[in-house]
Design a protein around this nucleic acid. Structure first.
Lengths: 328, 328
DNA sequence: CTGAAAGCGCTAACAG
DNA sequence: CTGTTAGCGCTTTCAG
């Protein structure tokens, strides 16, 4: 900046003003300085600028990983949400810092904020970390979470209506005449819990029994889902419908069913959740619950901006809709 | 930092040394200061540290978007590579800044480096921007590109062997007895060009004619691919094999064929490229060329580190392998 | 409208 | 082993 100042025959203060489009500068001087900067490929050092001005236009996107599972960020739903968030933040002139954090030490991402790397962050993957997230919020880390609305929640969350989604999915199976409908997924934590509750409610609502022997516990990972499905099949409970907590595990479950010569949808109709890209192309194409990720990304950003302003925006729940395909 | 210093009864210099594990400090003092910092949730301000020390542990990942196409970052191949890169960089203790840039103004990402936001960057999506990338390299922007090795290339690239991939895919179709094999994709630029050349070579190699009327031009976007496929089918050329430059467009092409009552693989065998998640779950499951993305991510990072050190590592080409599924 | 001077939070000579 | 001091590149009062 000193070089530019010397070349323009002014002080660095004037260069700074010119480059920041200050009002109090002669337009002619400003243009001259800007031209000079351009010609010499000079760009203001972002770090120094932030340090001095206290501003920060970098937002964090935190995707926790579980130490007991392969770390890889391959879940298509997360990746898709990430893509939409990147687009929304870019459009709003924010830089996006992608960060992976051990899910058992979510408090570590406070350092992202404390160290000034990010002005706030979006966390994807609520799972069962409600307490850790509350602790972060209590520490006054500007934070928005993609996930379910939970009681005693100190942070702002944006999510789709998982209860309604679970209800819609199950009710659809019932309307297709299915009576013995299993649930595959987690049922204790985060969003899956509500999907599970929607499933139970839909059964009750139609006068069908809620049978714990048809609850198939599984995390979101493909391999574990396949194992869980195999183990369930080995128990010999006859089912004619399956609602899975995510497309990924639904598709893997269909693979297991195929391998066991069970036809989808003739023998067992299957509904997934998320409407990821693969759901359209699976065999058979998977009926699923779509979450509006473009809206979600914009909502997450809007909420985060409010939080950073010091407000306490209320959590939002977006609608979800049933997408019909051949698996039902 | 001054607060911590006062509490510890030392100077800020000592606090700095303690927090940076300097040798020249009494262990006892160091631990006392560290404990104090921890207790008060003090974290060194990353920006100030970088400014003073000149270090920067943030790497950029640039994914250009084309102004004439929807901006959305939804291509599963890119997203998957992104995931692997995020993991590799995290493992190596780098922060990852995700940036979208207009593909017609790739020079803009020089600002990312000039402004000190990133110490170097990985660019995904070479396409036909060879000249712009060369210009960036000439500007001395530390840069590694995911893509093909091109002549007169001033930057370091990492990619898979696209010629070999195209050859393998096409040769596989030929070995399956197909004689009239179309190519769907781009054939002028970047990686697709080499896949196309591998396709031509495989045909020649088996004594089959290379017929320009079976070249179907299409970008990587699903909608355009579908339109191109429809237009081609309307022309009435009979084909019994199709090699597509990416899984995404292969899957969409299969959709078009299905809609026209052409059976895959009976009437037309199809091979894609990338082995994205959806390829395993498409109908029918898609034979494809797998690119080893985990290796790719590590190679990209390793090259970038060398470039940042001032070296000029040679470009690398990773192997690619045929994955057999029901579409052939 | 512009310049001088102070300082954002930190690190690294240098001197003890 | 520790403190003093200077300064990374920039912005912003305060004077003029």
């Amino acid at each position: 900046m000193m070089d530019i100042a010397k070349m323009a025959g002014v002080s660095t203060a004037t260069v700074s003003r010119a480059l920041n489009d200050s009002e109090s500068i002669r337009p002619e001087t400003r243009e001259r300085i800007k031209a000079l900067a351009q010609a010499h490929q000079y760009t203001v050092h972002a770090g120094a600028k932030n340090l001095r001005s206290g501003e920060n236009r970098t937002l964090g996107l935190v995707i926790p990983y579980r130490a007991d599972l392969p770390m890889q960020l391959t879940d298509p739903f997360f990746l898709s949400l990430l893509g939409h968030l990147a687009d929304a933040m870019t459009a709003a002139q924010y830089d996006l810092l992608l960060s992976r954090v051990n899910a058992d030490h979510l408090d570590e991402c406070a350092a992202l904020y404390d160290s000034g790397r990010v002005a706030g962050m979006v966390m994807v993957g609520q799972w069962d970390h409600h307490d850790q997230l509350n602790a972060l919020a209590k520490r006054r880390v500007p934070l928005v979470v993609w996930g379910a609305m939970l009681p005693d929640q100190l942070y702002c969350s944006v999510g789709s209506d998982n209860f309604s989604g679970g209800f819609q999915a199950t009710d659809h199976l019932i309307k297709r005449g299915r009576q013995r409908i299993a649930y595959l997924g987690d049922f204790n934590s985060g969003e899956a819990k509500f999907r599970f509750e929607g499933y139970c409610e839909a059964l009750r609502n139609s006068g069908l029994p809620v049978r714990p022997e048809l609850f198939i516990q599984s995390p979101y990972t493909p391999l574990e889902a396949q194992q869980a499905m195999h183990a369930f099949c080995n128990q010999g409970f006859a089912i004619d419908g399956l609602f899975a907590a995510s497309d990924l595990i639904a598709i893997n479950a269909m693979g297991v069913l195929n391998a066991r010569n069970l036809k989808v949808p003739e023998d067992i109709a299957v509904v997934g959740y998320d409407d990821v890209d693969a759901a359209r192309h699976s065999f058979p194409p998977l009926s699923t619950i779509r979450q509006p990720l473009d809206l979600a990304a914009r909502a997450l950003l809007a909420c985060l901006q409010e939080v950073m302003r010091g407000a306490q925006p209320s959590s939002r729940q977006l609608g979800s809709e049933l997408v019909l395909r051949a698996s039902t």
